[in-house]
Design a protein around this nucleic acid. Structure first.
Length: 887
RNA sequence: GGGCGAAUAGCUCAGCUGGUCAGAGCGCCUGCCUUACACGCAGGAUGUCGGGGGUUCGAGUCCCUCUUCGCCCACCA
């Protein structure tokens, strides 16, 4: 075989291996009829740039898919991109702004073309970046949520829900982003705690008999007040209900109404009512027939409906102005600090303005019912389990979904209005003319991005047509994502699956953690604390990135990485890949051709009596690792799986088996063929077990395995199974003794500074029966690894030496009289002891000084006392050592 | 305001159904360029398992409480 370089160079191999896998079609499953394993990739935004969050999410998915593929399931991981309405439109709007224009300058059609150009130009890059991570998804099925097929599914769903009465148009208070100029769903309005203020304002009674005090966090909205509300049972205000107050600044008379929605214990128990700008107030307004005065423009500036001096002011400017004027009138009762939650746009973080408008909604309760049932009946499970409660809680309190967006980028709402007869057409096909013959115009709005992504488990497979793909791959199995989109996407996919396919789209939802920095802050562009996965791949390799992410992640916990120290984070995994590489180099260079089968009916198979204790031990360890890793992968404990294989490869195979088997591999030493067979087989197994996590380095090595079938890829190879015939659990204990003996001698050598090249004699005293057998079986190994010239079972005549007791009580004795220069060693110890005694004497003087003890801070004194104690202990140890050397 | 997590070596974390669980990696200390690997090998030090109380023959592991961080939900203006 061609010599492999001593350092693994990921960049030289990864791209080529990836191409080989795709060329071989390994990621495109054939529908063989075997059990399938289907994972829907959370479609990244088409404009997004790969960040480490993708890295984590995709590594987890890829590990699971590769594992199940090797287990023989038809594994489909279906990739796609999301048109991401608001996010993408914002990106292009910024580009247009650089040219000094707005989308309104361009006009709708031109702007849409501009977005399409942008998407076509840059849209694929995120997918290419995913390939660098090693994603084994089926690129032949890649979709985009604005593809014709998926767009047809969107229309079909809209029309069907409309026909069932589950889609409706309504006039309500919705969450409005004054910067994006669109309505948002409740989920898209992220609540954030804000340290705000609560202003108490006096509203004079219209008859001049006094005033009412109302409290508000948004004083500017008073310009749109149309009532003051109190609780009907509130004795303080009962006499005022039905009377009127005079709204300051506006000079408008508004009624005092009684409404049960008011909490008498909060503030003064009297509330200003602004039906056009608050959901609760809107409901109160409805119940009492109050007018709703919209006082704001879409940009959240004050509108024509307020007194002239306020018009055009930004809402926060207006707030200051209103407060100032109220105060000038002597009507500001008080201002208090007030912490409360305020909605922010999840795309641009602008403070949400509740706004009254006409929007399209989905009635969700009927859709939630079967989705909730699936969870309650255990057909749908969550990892970690507690996330299931969040899901259930959300489903139980589900609110209608505002799906219309005042954007230009997205699926246009399939509704046409006739201006002549006023008819509304909701249609799967484009409508060009009304029944009445009049012209029609399509609804200007587009649909929420999530209105297309909630369908992907089936729309990506050809729905609404009844395609073979759909029949084969629906329902899927596992959904892997971050908890942030549990409601946006996961919960809604379950509802859509139940409604349109009659079955949930996956049975398991695995919600992994978030990648955070060492201060536990989420990594983000704005904080500048991100880690660029491509840089990590460039410097350490994709395998190192993957291994680091996987091993840092227990089920449901976050992954903490230091963006300022990639070396600390990623070098260990890179080192592991290199270790694997070198173990492979060694084994492969010593195994020139195919080896004998380990066990079984084959004529050349190894016979049990040919195996040494060490052979049986490594086979047993290998089998145990197969069980451990397999179970861990099955239980989504990817970190445990990674750790198990790491331990086996490094601590067992490399540190022990390879070391001890060397003499058998060189030349024509006896037992060489057995050693080669065992080494190759266990190494092959380890490569398979590790492949899901580190696909590249394992594949590169596996390609060199002698006897590998022509054209076979580890990526498509079978998952290893424990081989009961070759397994030897008893060897675990036996070889454990061997390891302990070697370890004990090494420790003694280190302790007494025995020169590295110096051979020692070794006595094993009163060994247990099992220990005796093990030591006899591997005497050669012990002598070599302990650098001992002879091993005697029994007592030694020497008195000077190092002694150790093993866990089973077996004693290990190393005479040292002839192994070290006793005089020199005694002198060394004596010198060390002398230095220490001087230090101790000085310290004792210091602590004997009453001035010091009385005046120095207590902690300092304590620290000095500790030092003294430590030195005394060290001195005692040195003295003991010297005694053992016969001094 | 409700609900839920987490606090274990200097750092990042394992420790799943109470009894070799006091661990791993990194870092640190001491030797080694031993012909697979110095991205390595061998040896070593380090923790009142957040504080307090309880259950138990026995508790990082169960219960209560306190402290500190984090997450989800919520129309008290």
């Amino acid at each position: 075989m061609t010599a492999l370089p001593p350092q693994y160079d990921p960049t030289a191999l990864e791209a080529e291996l990836y191409r080989a896998w795709t060329d071989a079609g390994l990621f495109t499953p054939a529908a063989t009829g075997r059990p399938h394993y289907v994972v829907m990739m959370p479609p990244p935004n088409v404009t997004s740039v790969l960040h480490v969050g993708h890295g984590l999410n995709h590594t987890v998915q890829d590990v699971l898919v590769r594992f199940e593929r090797m287990r023989g399931r038809d594994a489909l991981w279906l990739p796609g991109t999301d048109h991401a309405g608001i996010a993408t439109q914002n990106v292009v709007e910024r580009l247009v702004a650089k040219e000094g224009q707005t989308r309104f300058d361009l006009g709708r059609e031109a702007f849409e073309r501009r977005v399409w150009d942008y998407v076509r130009e840059t849209g694929g890059s995120i997918l290419d970046q995913l390939k660098a991570i090693g994603d084994s998804c089926d690129w032949t099925r890649t979709y985009f949520t604005l593809d014709p097929g998926l767009s047809r599914a969107v229309r079909e769903v809209f029309v069907r829900l409309y026909e069932k009465g589950l889609v409706y148009r309504g006039h309500y208070i919705i969450n409005w982003c004054p910067r994006c100029l669109t309505a948002l769903s409740n989920e898209e309005a992220e609540k954030a705690d804000v340290e705000g203020r609560l202003w108490s304002l006096r509203y004079p009674l219209a008859d001049g008999s006094g005033h009412l005090v109302v409290a508000t966090t948004r004083p500017e909205t008073m310009l749109g007040d149309t009532a003051v509300a109190v609780h009907p049972e509130d004795a303080r205000y009962r006499h005022l209900v039905g009377r009127a107050v005079r709204l300051p600044l506006v000079d408008r008379e508004i009624p005092v109404v009684a409404d049960a929605a008011i909490d008498p214990s909060f503030g003064t128990g009297a509330v200003k009512v602004t039906p056009a700008h608050d959901p609760t107030d809107f409901e109160i307004g409805r119940r009492h027939g109050l007018p709703a005065i919209d006082i704001m423009t879409p940009e959240a500036r004050l509108a024509e409906t307020v007194p002239e001096r306020f018009r055009g002011l930004d809402r926060f400017e207006a707030r200051k102005r209103v407060v100032a004027e109220v105060e000038a009138l002597g009507l500001l009762e008080k201002v208090e600090a007030h912490a409360h939650a305020v909605g922010h746009c999840y795309r641009c973080d602008t403070v949400i303005e509740p706004r009254l408008s006409d929007q399209w909604f989905v009635r969700m309760a009927p859709l939630a019912e079967p989705a909730l049932r699936a969870y309650r009946e255990g057909r749908l499970r969550f990892l970690p389990e507690r996330r299931g409660d969040e899901y259930a809680q959300w489903m139980e309190n589900i609110r209608d979904w505002c799906i219309s967006r005042q954007l230009w980028w997205g699926h246009r709402i399939p509704v046409w209005y006739c201006d002549d007869c006023g008819a509304t057409h909701v249609s799967r096909e484009d409508v060009t003319r009304c029944r009445c013959g009049g012209a029609v115009r399509q609804d200007e709005d587009v649909l929420d991005t999530w209105f297309s992504s909630w369908l992907v488990p089936f729309s990506s497979l050809g729905w609404p047509d009844d395609t073979p793909d759909l029949r084969t791959w629906y329902p899927g199995d596992v959904l892997v994502t971050a908890p942030e989109i549990l409601f946006f996407w996961v919960a809604r996919m379950v509802m859509a699956g139940c409604e349109f396919m009659g079955d949930i789209p996956f049975h398991t939802v695995y919600l992994h953690g978030t990648v955070r920095d060492t201060q536990h802050r989420k990594m983000s562009k704005s904080l500048g604390n991100g880690i660029d996965p491509l840089e990590v791949i460039r410097r350490y390799g994709a395998d190192a990135l993957r291994y680091t992410l996987v091993s840092g992640m227990a089920v449901g916990t976050d992954v903490i990485l230091d963006p300022n120290d990639l070396e600390t984070s990623f070098a260990p995994a890179r080192n592991f890949a290199n270790k694997l590489w070198n173990a492979g180099r060694f084994i492969l260079s010593n195994v020139p051709g195919p080896t004998r089968p380990l066990a079984g009916p084959h004529p050349g198979a190894l016979r049990p009596e040919e195996l040494t204790l060490a052979d049986r031990w490594i086979i047993a360890r290998c089998d145990a690792t197969i069980r451990e890793a397999t179970e861990a992968y099955e239980r989504f404990r990817l970190n445990d799986a990674a750790t198990a294989v790491y331990r086996f490869l490094w601590s067992d195979l490399a540190d022990w088996y390879i070391e001890l088997v060397k003499p058998r591999l060189y030349g024509d030493a006896p037992g060489g063929d057995v050693a080669r067979a065992v080494a190759l087989r266990t190494f092959d197994v380890a490569l398979r077990l590790l492949h899901p996590v580190m696909p590249f380095v394992t594949e590169a090595l596996w390609q060199k395995i002698p006897g590998k079938p022509e054209g076979a890829w580890l990526c498509g190879a079978s998952w290893p199974r424990p081989d009961a015939r070759a397994a030897a659990p008893d060897a675990l204990a036996g070889f454990g003794v061997v390891q302990e003996v070697v370890g004990a001698v090494r420790a003694i050598r280190a302790e007494y500074d025995v020169p590295p090249g110096k051979q020692v004699r070794l006595f094993v005293t009163h060994p247990s029966a099992a220990a005796q057998a093990a030591i006899r079986a591997e005497t050669g190994t012990i002598l070599r690894l302990a650098k001992a010239s002879e091993l005697t079972l029994g007592e030694s005549a020497d008195r000077v030496g190092g002694y150790a007791v093993l866990s089973d009580g077996t004693g290990v004795f190393v005479p040292l009289g002839d192994a070290i220069d006793l005089e020199r060693e005694r002198a060394r110890l004596g010198a060390e002891l002398g230095k220490l005694e001087q230090l101790i004497a000085g310290q004792e003087r210091k602590l004997g000084n009453e001035q010091f003890v009385a005046r120095a801070p207590a902690e300092v004194v304590a620290k000095e006392r500790e030092k003294l104690a430590t030195w005394r202990e060290q001195a005692a140890l040195l003295a003991d050592k010297r005694t053992r050397l016969g001094a």
